[in-house]
Simulated scan of single mutants.
Amino acid sequence: MIAGIHHAQITIPSGKEEEARAFYCGLLGLEEMDKPESLKGRGGFWLHTGNADLHIGTEEGVDRYQTKAHIAYEVNDVRYWKEHLEKHGTNILQSIAIPGYDRFECRDPFGNRVEMIQVL
């Protein structure tokens, strides 16, 4: 039996951790958590996201703008997030409607697809 999702991982280019922290911790407000000593030398960092964690790893040679892979963050006020991200210069992408949900997409500074979704 699978009990749930423990964490998901996305990647950023090596050496871009501070820019990623500005987006994920600063703009999105996620809390950084301690990464085990045995993994610190690999770059990146880990975040709490509510009921699962997000690992930000480093990887070269990836065109993140060409993938549909993404994480959907469940939010209580999708309109707030849309306005907040727009205000800070994030390009908002419209999503195909799904009955019972309000949602939109954007890309982080590295091209990773980000979805904000609210249950109606």
Rank of each mutant, 00 (worst) to 15 (best):
M1I: 13
A3K: 14
G4I: 02
H6W: 09
H6I: 09
H6P: 00
H7L: 05
A8F: 10
Q9L: 11
Q9T: 15
I10T: 04
T11L: 00
T11H: 02
G15T: 07
G15Q: 12
K16G: 00
K16R: 12
E17D: 13
E18D: 15
E18P: 01
E19I: 09
R21N: 12
A22C: 02
F23N: 01
F23A: 08
F23Q: 05
C25G: 01
L27D: 04
L27P: 02
E31G: 12
E31M: 12
E32Q: 14
M33V: 14
M33N: 10
D34Y: 06
K35V: 14
K35Y: 10
K35T: 13
P36M: 10
P36V: 09
E37I: 10
S38R: 11
L39D: 07
K40I: 11
G41C: 06
G41F: 06
R42S: 10
G44Q: 05
F45M: 10
F45C: 03
F45H: 00
L47M: 09
L47R: 07
L47E: 04
H48E: 12
G50L: 03
A52R: 09
A52N: 13
A52F: 10
A52I: 08
D53Q: 14
L54A: 04
L54K: 03
L54T: 09
I56C: 10
E59D: 10
E60P: 02
G61F: 09
D63R: 07
D63V: 09
R64Y: 13
R64T: 13
R64W: 12
K68Y: 08
A69I: 13
H70P: 05
H70K: 04
V75D: 02
N76Y: 04
N76F: 02
R79L: 13
R79A: 15
R79E: 15
R79M: 09
R79F: 12
R79S: 15
W81C: 03
H84F: 03
H84L: 10
H84D: 08
L85A: 05
L85C: 11
E86A: 14
E86L: 08
E86H: 08
K87S: 14
H88Q: 13
T90W: 06
N91H: 08
L93G: 04
L93Y: 07
L93F: 01
L93R: 10
L93N: 08
Q94E: 15
I96T: 14
I96L: 08
A97R: 11
A97K: 09
A97D: 11
I98Y: 05
P99V: 03
G100P: 07
Y101Q: 12
D102R: 14
E105T: 13
C106L: 07
C106A: 15
D108P: 08
D108H: 07
P109C: 03
P109E: 00
F110M: 05
G111T: 04
N112V: 09
N112D: 07
N112P: 05
R113S: 05
R113I: 02
I117F: 01
Q118S: 01
V119T: 14
L120I: 13
L120K: 15
